[in-house]
Simulated assay, not measured.
Amino acid sequence: MKEIPASQAYHLLEPGPIVLVTTSHKGTPNVMTMGFHMMIQHAPPLIGCVVGPWDYSQRALKETGECVIAIPTIDLAEIVVDIGNCSGDSVDKFQRFGLKTRPAKEVKAPLLANCLANIECRVANSSLVDTYNLFILEAKRIWIDEARTERRMLHHRGDGSFMVDGALLDLSDRMTKWRQLP
């Protein structure tokens, strides 16, 4: 085996699909690309998300305590990367990238109609933000576009390359310990 630097762990343990995070601060919506997130628990559904001070959205998330996590599919790959390469402090990303929005039910941040799914979230714990830029979010509502035919998601490898979801391997019949979960 060949040793690689420990700093490259994210190449092997990517946290899940690339997502878009919308916020609304003082009536102005914004969207950012996020790659560092993880499920923390089932109930209540908690999601850990890294949104650092380098992200224009961090201030909005800190001050409003709410956001939407939108899950794009591979047909939006180039837009997802381009959103991550500009800042909402100088660009209206919704206009620039032709993003269609819908109002959310529980939060002021908009849903992204271009995406497969949207998760309305509220900050459940921000005690790790100053140290690790880690927000703990609680999912409040989930919206999915069941008519959408493209469902393959992007997984960032940390170096500008992405993996794309492939075939589904269904082993649910073997997951006997977890059947009681909703």
Rank of each mutant, 00 (worst) to 15 (best):
G84I: 03
Q41C: 10
S90L: 04
F36N: 04
S57G: 09
H37E: 00
Q58T: 01
H42N: 10
V81H: 06
A77L: 12
A43I: 12
C86F: 02
K62G: 00
L46G: 05
S87Y: 15
D55L: 09
S57H: 06
P44M: 01
H37A: 01
W54H: 14
V51K: 08
C49I: 15
I69Y: 11
S87E: 11
T64C: 11
L76M: 15
R59C: 05
A70G: 05
M39V: 04
M39E: 09
L61V: 12
H42I: 01
H37D: 00
V68F: 06
V81L: 06
I71A: 05
M34A: 09
C86H: 03
G65Q: 14
V50F: 08
V68K: 08
D55S: 15
I71Q: 07
I79L: 10
L61Y: 15
C86K: 03
P72N: 09
G35Q: 00
L76E: 09
R59W: 13
E78H: 04
G88D: 10
V50Q: 08
D75P: 10
A70S: 15
P53K: 15
H42Q: 10
M34K: 00
S57F: 06
E78Y: 01
P72K: 07
I74V: 12
V68H: 11
S90I: 04
E78S: 05
F36W: 14
L76Q: 14
R59H: 12
G88E: 08
H42C: 03
A77W: 13
I71L: 14
P44S: 01
G52M: 04
S87I: 06
